[in-house]
C-alpha cells in the first residue's frame, strides 16, 4: 500500500467519523458534556491555585519581624542595635519606631485613645521592624533570623507576624498535589467514559464490523473509525471544559478585582492561558483516543463473523 492511499484512508475515516458523530448528535453531546465537566473540575481548581500563588507572591515581600527592645533601652542604644542588625547579610531593611511614635500610631489606629490616656506611662517599648532579604524570606530563613535577633543584647522579644502566610503557601502547595491527583483520576475517568461509549457504539455496529471482517478487514482497520470518534469525544470535551472555565473566570473576575482593590492590591484574576489550554485540549484528545483504543481493541477482537 502506498503512502498516498494510507493518508487518503486516514483522512477519509477522520472525516467519516465526524459524519458518524453527526448521526447521533444527542448521544455525542451528552458524552462530550460529561467529559467536559470531568475535565473542568480539576481545571477550575488549577486556575484558582494558580491565581492564589500569584496573589501570595506579593505577600512574600511583606515578611517582617517586629523586634521589641527592653523597656530600659535608650533611643541612642536603639539606633545602635538597628545599625547592628542592618549590617547582617540576611536583612534588607530596619525601620526604627521609638516608643512615643509607636504610641501615637497605636492611638490613631486602635481607637483606644481614652484608655491610653488613663495610663501613667507609655507601655510600648522601642521597636525595630526588620525586613529580611528576599532570599531569607522563607520559613527556615526567617526562623533562623528570629533566633539570631533574640540573641542580640537589649532585645526583649522577636515576633514574626507573617507565619500564616507561610502556612497558606504550604496549604496551596499541598492543594497543587491534590489538583494533579484529581487530574489523574479524572483523566482516567475520561478514558473510561470514552471507552464505554465506544463499547456501546461497537455493539450497535456489530453487524457492520462483521461484514467488514468478512470481506477481509483487519481488526486495525475496523478499529480506526472508533479511534477517531474517541479523539473527537476527547477534543470536544476538552474544548467544552475550557469554555466552562473561561465562563467561570469571567464570572468571578469582577468581584475578585473589587475585593483586591479594597485590600489595596492591583491583583486581577488570570484565566487558563493559551499554552495550558493547548495542553488540556491535547491531553483530553489523547485520553479520548486511548480510551477508544483500549475498548475497540478488546471488543472488535471478540467480534467474529458466523
Amino acid at each position: 500500500m502506498n503512502v498516498g492511499a494510507y493518508v487518503d484512508r486516514h483522512a477519509q475515516t477522520l472525516v467519516g467519523s465526524i459524519g458518524r458523530v453527526a448521526d447521533a448528535p444527542v448521544a455525542f453531546l451528552m458524552t462530550m458534556t460529561v467529559i467536559g465537566i470531568a475535565v473542568a473540575l480539576p481545571l477550575c481548581l488549577f486556575v484558582f491555585l494558580q491565581n492564589a500563588r500569584q496573589a501570595m507572591a506579593g505577600w512574600n515581600d511583606a515578611f517582617e519581624l517586629s523586634v521589641y527592645l527592653t523597656k530600659s533601652t535608650t533611643p541612642t542604644r536603639t539606633r545602635e542595635v538597628a545599625a547592628q542588625i542592618r549590617s547582617r547579610d540576611d536583612v534588607a531593611n530596619v525601620r526604627v519606631i521609638l516608643a512615643p511614635q509607636a504610641l501615637a500610631e497605636f492611638r490613631r489606629y486602635s481607637g483606644f485613645g481614652d484608655a491610653l490616656d488613663a495610663l501613667q506611662e507609655n507601655p510600648l517599648p522601642n521597636t525595630l521592624v526588620v525586613t529580611p532579604t528576599p532570599a531569607a524570606s522563607t520559613a527556615a530563613g526567617t526562623a533562623a533570623l528570629r533566633r539570631a535577633l533574640r540573641a542580640v543584647p537589649d532585645v526583649d522579644q522577636v515576633q514574626l507576624d507573617t507565619q500564616w502566610v507561610q502556612r497558606l503557601i504550604a496549604i496551596v502547595d499541598l492543594l497543587r498535589r491534590v489538583v494533579w491527583l484529581a487530574a489523574g483520576l479524572l483523566g482516567l475517568g475520561v478514558a473510561l467514559i470514552v471507552g464505554n461509549t465506544i463499547r456501546l457504539d461497537i455493539q450497535n455496529r456489530r453487524a457492520e464490523i462483521e461484514v467488514m471482517k468478512l470481506v477481509g478487514a483487519s481488526d486495525g482497520f475496523a478499529r480506526r473509525p472508533f479511534l477517531y470518534s474517541g479523539f473527537w469525544y476527547g477534543f470536544g470535551g476538552g474544548a467544552l471544559a475550557l469554555l466552562l472555565v473561561a465562563v467561570a473566570v469571567a464570572w468571578v473576575s469582577a468581584p475578585v478585582s473589587r475585593l483586591a482593590h479594597l485590600y489595596g492590591s492591583g491583583f486581577s484574576l488570570t484565566g487558563i492561558g493559551v499554552e495550558a489550554g493547548a495542553v488540556v485540549l491535547l491531553s483530553s484528545s489523547l485520553l479520548g483516543w486511548l480510551g477508544a483504543w483500549i475498548a475497540a481493541t478488546q471488543h472488535i477482537r471478540a467480534i467474529n463473523p458466523s
Binding site: M1, N2, G4, A5, D8, V215, G216, F221
Partner: peptide, 10 residues
C-alpha cells in the same frame, strides 16, 4: 468496501 480495505487508491 473490499477495495478500501485493500488500500486501493481513490
Amino acid at each position: 468496501l473490499p477495495l478500501i480495505i485493500a488500500g486501493v487508491p481513490r
